[in-house]
Computed example of a mutant assay.
Amino acid sequence: MDTPGLGDEMYDLAEEHWSSMDRFADRLVLRGPTLSEDGEEHTGSVHVVEAADRAAAERFADGEPYWRAGLYRKVTAFRAVVLLDRALGRP
């Protein structure tokens, strides 16, 4: 979840953010912004990443440039199993 009112700061770090995500391209299952009800404001991000364990997932989250810069007010990690992935043709 983003810290409200930091759009300019996020824009300034966007290239670093994208470069960081590119390093995990082979392990990212899904990523993208979350939006306000009207779709006008960026409220956070969702990153679904394949990780060996919780520690690896936390290292991914801790290394995210927006998090390191204090632009996210909260990061929540959940363990999940992908049961349907239409993009990859998994049943």
Score class of each variant (00 low, 15 high):
residue 28 L to C: 05
residue 17 H to V: 00
residue 51 A to P: 01
residue 33 P to N: 12
residue 46 V to L: 12
residue 58 E to C: 04
residue 83 L to E: 09
residue 29 V to C: 11
residue 82 V to Y: 04
residue 30 L to W: 09
residue 74 K to E: 15
residue 33 P to L: 12
residue 78 F to G: 08
residue 86 R to S: 06
residue 28 L to A: 11
residue 12 D to R: 15
residue 65 P to K: 00
residue 69 A to S: 02
residue 66 Y to K: 00
residue 76 T to A: 09
residue 80 A to Q: 02
residue 71 L to A: 02
residue 23 R to Q: 12
residue 33 P to E: 09
residue 57 A to R: 03
residue 14 A to E: 15
residue 30 L to D: 05
residue 44 G to P: 06
residue 62 D to R: 14
residue 69 A to I: 02
residue 29 V to R: 14
residue 18 W to D: 15
residue 89 G to A: 08
residue 65 P to H: 01
residue 82 V to A: 14
residue 17 H to R: 05
residue 10 M to T: 15
residue 21 M to E: 11
residue 75 V to Y: 02
residue 41 E to G: 00
residue 6 L to C: 11
residue 7 G to W: 09
residue 88 L to M: 03
residue 20 S to E: 09
residue 69 A to H: 01
residue 53 D to H: 04
residue 57 A to N: 10
residue 15 E to N: 15
residue 16 E to A: 15
residue 24 F to K: 04
residue 2 D to K: 01
residue 1 M to T: 07
residue 2 D to L: 00
residue 50 E to D: 09
residue 70 G to I: 07
residue 3 T to Y: 04
residue 3 T to H: 07
residue 17 H to A: 07
residue 57 A to G: 13
residue 2 D to Q: 02
residue 62 D to P: 01
residue 43 T to C: 00
residue 55 A to R: 11
residue 15 E to M: 06
residue 74 K to G: 09
residue 76 T to E: 12
residue 85 D to I: 00
residue 7 G to C: 06
residue 90 R to G: 13
residue 68 R to C: 02
residue 9 E to P: 07
residue 69 A to M: 03
residue 64 E to M: 02
residue 30 L to E: 06
residue 40 E to R: 07
residue 5 G to E: 15
residue 57 A to V: 04
residue 80 A to I: 10
residue 58 E to I: 07
residue 4 P to Q: 12
residue 50 E to A: 09
residue 75 V to W: 02
residue 88 L to N: 06
residue 18 W to R: 14
residue 23 R to L: 13
residue 38 D to V: 03
residue 80 A to W: 03
residue 47 H to M: 13
residue 6 L to M: 08
residue 55 A to C: 09
residue 4 P to I: 07
residue 18 W to Y: 15
residue 62 D to N: 12
residue 61 A to N: 05
residue 83 L to C: 08
residue 18 W to C: 15
